[in-house]
Amino acid sequence: MNIILISSSYKGIYPYIEQTVEDEFLKLGHSVVKINPTLTKELREVIKQSNPDVVITLVGYKTDKQLLNYLKKTGAVLCVWFTEDPFYLDRSIELIPYFQHVFTIDLAAFEFYKVLFPEKDILHLPLGTIPSIYQPEEVKAKYDLCLAGFPYPGRVELVQRILAETRYSLIVVGPGWRKSITENDQKRVTIINRWSSPHLIRNVFNQSKIILNPHRDDNFVANQNNLGITSKSINNRCFDIAACGGFQLIPHKPDTGVHFALEKEIVVYSCPQHCIELIYFFMKNEVERTQYSQNAYKKALSGHTMFHRIQVILNRLFEKSKEE
């Protein structure tokens, strides 16, 4: 197939994800042309020459509506993969009418879209990990605990509780953490106060005994989710941590057991206090940590890579085309 991949134009992790999406399509024998999200005269020519069968974009919030209308006239099948759901659900809803196929990383968003847009093909599809980036390293554990990601209030609360109630070493990675930890506590915490590449994150994961993975707050002030749809899904970092062979503690989500076997591949907590109790237990039980890590690693590589996700997309498109 001839595939057009519309760049999301977001920085950070997105160039890595989009490059992997492109690479996986190419590995499967498809041609891929990546374009910018704004329609121009030059871009019209590129689109004509590529003669697309399928158009896909991640996020989609910066995509020019004129571009989408132009692409629709080519007869190509338009797909969007919402990777920020449900936290920007307001913006996602505005875009759905332009696409035939809608993929979302969140189960709650999927359930909502199925009701609101019954005529659309909606699929719950988490992002997969990138094994060429996220992988085990032969390094010694340097930190007891780590937390990588933006300091959302819930994450800050968890870190503050850990600092107050334990003496374990901790590293936090992400812009804004220095402001979120008191000067006195900063003496105990290693802070990388910036966005960091996936390669650095991988290194931190591999140097940590326990990786804390509290998810984004549903009520964070910057969210654009006026309907208040509460997330029901684990985040993509779960798969990345597993691919690194890391042991993680995550909050319970309704779809956790769909992706990992509870009490075998992953450990969930119900509240900050429960998380601290689990930290104490697993810090003293390295054998159990290792068993969980090994099981989750095998699961991630056998079913949760970006290659697996691209296969799901292609199979979905093939099935729907047969129905039509």
Rank of each mutant, 00 (worst) to 15 (best):
G75C: 01
L39G: 07
K48D: 00
V46D: 09
E24C: 07
Y61F: 09
G60R: 08
Y70I: 09
T38L: 12
E84N: 09
T38A: 02
L58D: 03
K62W: 15
L67M: 08
E22C: 03
I47M: 03
N36F: 13
N51Y: 02
V21S: 07
L26E: 10
L26R: 11
E24G: 06
V77Q: 08
N69R: 14
S31A: 04
G29I: 09
Y70D: 06
L71K: 02
Q66Y: 12
T57N: 08
S31G: 03
E18G: 03
I56R: 06
E45Q: 12
L39W: 04
K27F: 01
D85V: 00
E42Q: 10
L28D: 10
G29A: 00
E45A: 11
N69K: 11
Y14G: 08
V54L: 13
T20V: 11
V77C: 04
T83G: 10
N51V: 02
K73R: 14
L28A: 10
H30V: 06
V32M: 07
E18N: 11
V77A: 13
P86T: 03
Q66S: 14
K72N: 12
K34S: 10
V54R: 04
D85K: 08
K73W: 07
T40C: 06
K65F: 10
V32F: 08
D23E: 14
S50E: 02
P15Q: 08
K48S: 11
G29P: 00
K34Q: 14
P52L: 07
L68A: 11
T40V: 11
Q19E: 15
P37L: 11
V59H: 11
G60S: 09
V59L: 12
P37V: 13
K48H: 05
T38G: 05
Q49M: 08
D85W: 01
I13A: 08
T74A: 01
V77H: 12
N36H: 05
Q66M: 13
Q19R: 15
L71T: 00
K48I: 02
V21R: 01
L58H: 01
I35A: 05
G29S: 01
F25L: 13
D85R: 02
K72R: 12
